[in-house]
């Protein structure tokens, strides 16, 4: 009994000592992961994921509290990048990129109240009080905040029109022969 106790205690103590030394030698400073995740996220702090801004979302991701598919504006690309960084197998096939959207001001309805102008996180809406606002396309992230505050439903998200420059081939329809032969 005594031998068993002593020997195990000594063994445990020795191993513990080794691990303790190793823990000092191989110490990892901080958590670089969160910073890397913040870089992947869009950074528009839109809050659509339900976390306070992109940094909050990154923290949640790093702690495994949120799925990699949390970011609606990021779409598939961001989900894939997050999954790769976190080394998880995420089913990103479900995350279809919603059609790219952009905010548009319907000029006949705009009363120039500047509310949209004030909430836009990327300064994508230009205009001044009592003037018709317009959207700076390159800066709009389609976060939808302007749509929420507009009193006249003048600002609406619209699908981005396809241009010759942005067009590309659709994915080939594969003949998987999934139908029963007649």
């Amino acid at each position: 009994m005594i031998t068993a106790l002593t020997s195990l205690t000594i063994l445990g103590a020795i191993l513990g000592l080794i691990l303790g030394v190793a823990a000092r030698v191989f110490r990892v400073e901080g958590n670089a992961l969160v910073a890397e995740l913040v870089d992947i996220l869009p950074g528009s702090q839109c809050g659509q994921c339900g976390f306070p801004g992109c940094a909050g979302a990154a923290q949640a991701l790093a702690e495994g509290r949120a799925p990699v598919t949390l970011c609606p504006p990021g779409g598939r690309a961001v989900a894939i990048a997050l999954a790769a960084k976190l080394g998880v197998d995420a089913d990103v096939s479900g995350v279809q990129d919603s059609v790219p959207m952009i905010a548009e001001v319907r000029e006949e309805l705009c009363i120039g109240c500047t509310r949209c102008f004030k909430v836009c996180p990327t300064d994508a809406i230009m205009g001044a009080a009592q003037q018709i606002h317009s959207v700076f396309r390159e800066a709009c992230t389609a976060c939808g905040k302007c749509e929420e505050v507009c009193p006249t439903e003048s600002v609406k998200l619209q699908p981005v029109p396809v241009t010759l420059h942005a067009w590309y081939w659709n994915k080939p329809v594969t003949q998987t022969m999934q139908t029963v032969a007649a």
């Binding site: 998987t176 022969m177 999934q178 139908t179 029963v180 032969a181």
Partner: peptide, 11 residues
Amino acid sequence: LRLQQRAVRPV
């Protein structure tokens, strides 16, 4: 193929 409801003949 029948069980998988796939076309039999082409395969």
